[in-house]
Design a protein around this nucleic acid. Structure first.
Ligand code: MN
Ligand code: MN
Ligand code: MN
Ligand code: MN
Lengths: 227, 227
DNA sequence: TAAAAAAGTTAGGCATGACTAACAAGTTTT
DNA sequence: AAAACTTGTTAGTCATGCCTAACTTTTTTA
């Protein structure tokens, strides 16, 4: 199955910028992104981001007016979704077949997502029997680029007494994921919010016979579904 | 299993040059390689090769005197063998699990061999139950870098009447491999040499109820084991 | 609304890894 | 041994993608 995106032949960096634009748009629920915001996200200087954006505008993958905010064209977005699909399929493969833990998959998937072979991705998808979600609970876009947005309710939105299920995490860093696991939480964990501490808005939660207090910052990075 | 080669952090290009040096040494059964020979192998200019060799000498992976031929240091060779291991494990994975044909695997493995994760390679090896050979019949070096050389008898060495088994191919190009398959040959095929044509030394062979005449150049690229 | 701050752009550099053109050293040929 | 050829090296250029410093434009705040 040949993929039309292979006519583009973008560099690894160009791909990373497109994907970053897409992720920022999804994560912060906006349609336009500032140049410096993009630079910060990718940990490069504003000048570097500005330079790359010029190239992507030349390839009609990004649009913006001078001194204006950045938008992905529909083609730019399609390529970004395709990269997300590859990233999440690889993470799933590493997790389910290569004995990687959920905090180890992201780093290697960052490399694997740039491998150019539509056939490999299609076959990987088939091999794993078309998984719906990656190890962090994120939806894997299908071969046509269709995808659902991951849920937007975080643990920090709940009030004392409410119950929920952990459906995804909003941070792929090793530090965060290791901490989540150490506490004893995982995808599908059922959590009850005991109390939101007034002083610093940290959250007292209980789950499987255990009680823990987690920070506001932590709770902001846990996506849940109300029960 | 952490791999010591990850302390090197070579670029993709540096890796390709080391691997090329190693392949030339194995294929042409020499210990030293000329700069221009290396350049030709990699399809770059002699100036480019010369430039890269300077860097590899700085990293003590290559040795040579000025205007002299190039040698891999033992460290350079170890890294090259590690790259060959990765390449052949990926080819095997693509062939056995991803429904790639033997002429499709090489191109994608050229990309995958540069993925940095010793754990992924160890797990891939375990997942496939420690395969000994890749889809072209080449030996896969083990995790310690031990490997056997592929057999050096080609079909073109045989005389009329002799019989052999196809054990490997010495060319990974799509054009060659497709032709091999089209004729009806594959790894393990039993071949009888009917006659070596005196005029142009092409070879009349028979196998599984079929008779074909193949060129000298073709016969040079088929490795066999005498029966 | 004028000053200050933030956001975006441009200019000039640097490293990597290609290239061509010119040159130097080594190897054959005559 | 000199000429011719082959091989290796150097110099200068280019594209990519990063940087800092300086500048311009837009937005915020006083
Ligand atoms: Mn990830
Ligand atoms: Mn990436
Ligand atoms: Mn190969
Ligand atoms: Mn390679």
């Amino acid at each position: 199955m040949t993929n039309k995106f292979y006519s583009y032949d973008l560099t690894k960096s160009e791909e990373d910028y497109l994907k970053a634009l897409f992720q920022i748009i999804i994560e912060s629920e906006v349609t336009k992104v500032g140049n410096n915001q993009l630079a910060e996200y990718l940990k490069v200087s504003p000048a570097s981001a500005n330079n790359m954006i010029k190239k992507l505008k030349g390839k009609k993958l990004v649009i913006s007016e001078k001194y204006g905010k950045l938008e992905l064209t529909s083609e730019g977005k399609e390529i970004a979704v395709w990269l997300v699909r590859k990233h999440r399929l690889w993470e799933t493969f590493l997790y389910k077949y290569m004995n990687f833990s959920w905090d180890e998959v992201h780093e290697v998937a960052e490399q694997l997502e740039h491998i150019r072979s539509a056939k490999l991705i299609d076959e990987l998808d088939r091999f794993m029997d078309y998984p719906q979600k990656d190890p962090h609970g994120d939806i894997i876009p299908d071969e046509k680029g269709n995808y659902e947005l991951t849920p937007k309710i975080t643990l920090s939105h709940l009030k004392g007494g409410e119950r929920c299920r952990l459906v995804a995490v909003n941070d792929s860093s090793v530090a965060f994921l290791k901490y989540v696991s150490e506490i004893g939480l995982a995808l599908s964990s059922e959590i009850k919010v005991e109390e939101v501490v007034e002083f610093d808005r940290s959250v007292r939660i209980s789950f499987s016979d255990r009680t823990e207090t987690v920070s506001r910052k932590f709770a902001d990075n846990i996506f849940v579904e109300l029960l």
